[in-house]
């Protein structure tokens, strides 16, 4: 799904990045520990955390798209860190539940986690 479509569905805004990028999978979490433990594909991250560690976590996993939910806006320092890494950042007033729900309903897939 194109980022432009994502923006339309979550009634969001783009902070940096490209609306021509696309995503197929998404993972929603405020716990970066879990993102690091479970995300291993090129996945969009939905989170309500807006600190540097979100960008660092995404960087380590090669994630390119982050959607900040619940009206949270990352500070400029955080945006700059993401910009240097070529990431796309979106913001939305939707809750994490609604953002995830609307994307899932429109074909964005969930990750299957294994608890070995």
């Amino acid at each position: 799904m194109k980022i432009s479509k994502v923006i339309e569905l979550i009634n969001g805004e783009i902070l940096i990045g490209s609306i021509d990028d696309s995503i197929n999978f998404a993972f929603s979490s405020d716990l970066m520990s879990d993102v690091l433990a479970f995300v291993n594909e090129d996945t969009a991250l939905l989170t309500g955390l807006v600190n540097n560690q979100v960008i660092r976590t995404a960087e380590m996993l090669d994630l390119r798209t982050i959607i900040f939910v619940r009206g949270k806006v990352p500070p400029q320092e955080v945006v700059n860190l993401a910009k240097e890494r070529g990431m796309t950042l979106l913001i939305t007033n939707f809750t994490m539940f609604e953002s995830s729900g609307v994307l899932f309903k429109n074909g964005i897939e969930a990750l299957r986690i294994s608890n070995e």
């Binding site: 405020d30 716990l31 970066m32 520990s33 879990d34 993102v35 690091l36 433990a37 989170t47 955390l49 600190n51 560690q53 979100v54 976590t57």
Partner: peptide
């Protein structure tokens, strides 16, 4: 900051 879930060491092992 989004950490402290007790997943770090097991994740490093994984």
């Amino acid at each position: 900051l989004g950490f402290g879930a007790g997943m770090g060491l097991p994740n490093m092992k994984r």
